[in-house]
Nucleic acid binder design. Structure first.
Lengths: 212, 212
DNA sequence: AGTATAGCGGTACACTTGTTCTAAGTCAAA
DNA sequence: TTTGACTTAGAACAAGTGTACCGCTATACT
């Protein structure tokens, strides 16, 4: 890739210091702090080497902004962590709770877990009870749902069945006026409900089970 | 997971903005930038609410330091993403494959998913086949395992049964010379095997199912 | 030698930015 | 209504901080 070769001892020192300082404080050091730590007696020299590092691709800087720099390839990389609201519980006997924005717990998930779903539309619910075992989902599991009031054929959705007053997780198939809800468990038969009686609450993005 | 309560709308807005800004720039915003983003017309008011956030434990600040703040519990604190090797497949008819370090896919997981398990000891396997349905684990699921050749009573483990030449996921109970392996599914009976015939391959940390 | 270039040190300046002070508005309890 | 705590606004100040400019040294090359 890029030649680490051309970096002077001072420049490497600066990189190490920035990484350390960043982890310690959560924000980058100033030019003068870098100078003090690396035994450079002039702010202009620090600035000089900083620009060298930018040129070499190790750093990004913003002009005239205090502490306006960031490590690009060196540092503990990006911020690749998303958070989704852990809104409440999902039980068979009640519809999915409306999730109050901001208030409540947040759950860390890896971006890959969300796939292509827009992070802002995804929320998490903890399953309460064993009513979803036919969908291979156990008590205490966490279900990640994308907010939706409609679904594509074949998607695994959380639906509220008005006439049965129950929430279930089933695969969704639109069949004319009716809707076929297919359990994940292939040994179980599908159920058919009137489309009007069936309110889609969300599309299942992932299921997470923690053993601790 | 973090609880937010007692924070004014402005304070919540500030937290959200700081989180976003931090991810975008790699360094925290200034008081005036926060004010502009949250429609606060006075730097002193921003400063006031910032101190409130410190008092509430959401923020750390350093006096007289530009951008001298950091999110403590809220932020996607820089490097909060762990990677575990996605080593191979787990099937009923073969022992867990030895996992080749480094080579192969890596799976991003949130630190919370690993719990207290040492990240270096955790690896992931994709389940192939429906042989684990009694453990509520479906074809295609990803199982996170902590490397171990022994287990505590009650832990969910992956074991290789030498005489049956099969790998299963069961709860582990040491009972004298024998070992009781209890299926997750409570309707199924436990099996008892000689301790010598039972090789623990790992302890289940979590199960992840992606719907896409 | 002469010259060009990279690197360093020092200083002054201007802009950035946190802090402080005063005054006023809001809202609930007495 | 009055009181007092909490919140907001505005402005001025002082300190923090990046930048520009000057001169100096050392090395390499013509």
């Amino acid at each position: 890739m890029t030649k680490r070769k051309g970096l002077s001892a001072r420049q490497q020192h600066i990189l190490r210091y920035m990484d350390q300082y960043m982890g310690e404080h959560g924000y980058p050091p100033t030019i003068r702090e870098i100078g003090a730590a690396t035994h450079i007696n002039s702010t202009s020299v620090v600035n000089y080497n900083l620009n060298k590092l930018v040129q070499a691709g190790y750093l990004e800087r913003r002009d005239r902004v205090s502490r306006g720099m960031r490590l690009v390839k060196w540092g503990r990389a990006a911020d690749n962590l998303l958070r989704v609201p852990l809104a409440g519980r999902i039980v068979a006997s009640a519809p999915v709770e409306a999730y109050a924005d901001g208030s409540g717990d947040m759950l860390d998930v890896a971006p890959a877990t969300l796939g292509n779903n827009p992070p802002g539309e995804v929320f998490a619910l903890r399953v309460q009870g064993d009513s979803m075992i036919d969908a291979m989902i156990a008590d205490g599991d966490i279900v990640l749902l994308r907010r939706a009031d409609t679904a594509q054929n074949g998607e695994l959705v959380a639906v509220w069945l008005a006439d049965e007053e129950a929430t279930t997780l089933k695969r969704f198939y639109h069949e004319g006026q009716r809707v076929r809800l297919q359990p994940e468990n292939p040994t179980m038969d599908p159920i058919y409900v009137d489309a009007a009686q069936c309110r889609v609450q969300g599309v299942v993005v992932a299921v997470i089970r923690h053993s601790h």
